[in-house]
């Protein structure tokens, strides 16, 4: 006999799960392919949407915070300062909301076919990398415009920053996805929650603005990511490796909590929709 499947009352987590995820990687690939295909089907609209969102946000923030409110920006032109933050922020916030919706939004498939449910949030976040890539083109343009040469270390640190953002969005998103299943009105609160998060992350202002309270900002893993990206791009300060390390540990803990909640919810999810 080729293969035996055992079905038992489920445990919360086992190492089998990881093996299984690997086995279903092709499906994850198909989900990513689907999302990208649907989004960029009309290539022009798709790409311009990916660029439009952060670009407009940059223009608005530059006008109001940069020009009118004279927000400090560590001596870097404000538009490029805010855009570098927005780039990671958009990636984080869109991945977070995508993940939070991954169970409820895919109820149709979940109640009809079996596959490891973690595939859904993972492929959802992976899709956001494409948006990130496209939106980065604007940053490159801005760098040329303002004649800023980034330190080559950015190439080294970028994968790490993306990884931390990825894990942060996954961890938080998985947790929210489980709550979303139980309390279906959470999804209405979510956009406001994400908007609030923007203001406790140094996207539109430099972390230095918080003065002696900046350690509070450091609790937010996205602070480390955005600070490090600016440090590498503009060379205004040395990269704070310690902060990055703490962020990495923090997001890993967040991810563990997220997975535990998610696995617990996924067990009875098909029963309550």
């Amino acid at each position: 006999m080729s293969k035996i499947t055992l079905i038992k009352p489920k445990k919360t987590f086992s190492f089998e799960d990881i093996k299984e995820l690997w086995k279903y990687r092709e499906l994850a690939y198909f989900f990513v392919w689907r999302d990208i295909k649907v989004k960029y089907k009309q290539t022009f609209v798709g790409i311009s949407w990916a660029i439009f969102q952060p670009f407009v946000a940059m223009v608005v923030f530059s006008v109001f915070f940069g020009t009118l409110a004279k927000m400090p920006s560590d001596g870097i032109p404000y538009p490029i300062f805010v855009y570098s933050g927005l780039l990671f922020w958009q990636f984080f916030s869109s991945a977070l909301s995508e993940t939070s919706n991954s169970l409820v939004g895919n109820a149709g498939i979940i109640t009809k076919v079996y596959f490891p449910r973690l595939i859904l949030p993972i492929s959802g976040v992976v899709t956001k990398f494409v948006d990130f890539g496209i939106a980065s083109l604007i940053l490159v343009g801005l760098m040329f415009y303002y004649n800023i040469t980034p330190s080559p270390i950015i190439l080294l640190i970028l994968p790490l920053l993306l990884l931390i953002t990825f894990i942060a969005a996954m961890g938080g998103g998985l947790f929210l996805a489980s709550i979303n299943v139980k309390y279906r009105d959470v999804r209405y609160v979510l956009p406001y929650f994400i908007q609030m998060l923007l203001f406790v992350t140094p996207v539109i202002y430099p972390a230095s603005i918080a003065g002696k309270w900046s350690f509070l900002l450091a609790l937010n893993p996205m602070t480390g990511v955005i600070k490090a990206s600016r440090a590498a791009l503009f060379g205004t300060e040395p990269i704070n490796w310690e902060l990055l390390g703490i962020s990495l540990i923090a997001v890993l803990i967040l991810l563990a909590i997220g997975i535990i909640f998610f696995k617990k919810t996924e067990r009875y999810f098909a029963d309550i929709v």
């Binding site: 080729s2 499947t5 055992l6 038992k8 076919v113």
Partner: peptide
């Protein structure tokens, strides 16, 4: 239960071979 969409509360199911469900 057989298509693993929801886990059983008690007991065990053993399936030999590739399973496909068409619900």
């Amino acid at each position: 239960l057989l298509s693993r969409i929801t886990p059983p509360t008690t007991g065990e199911i053993k399936l030999s071979g590739r399973v496909a469900s068409l619900l």
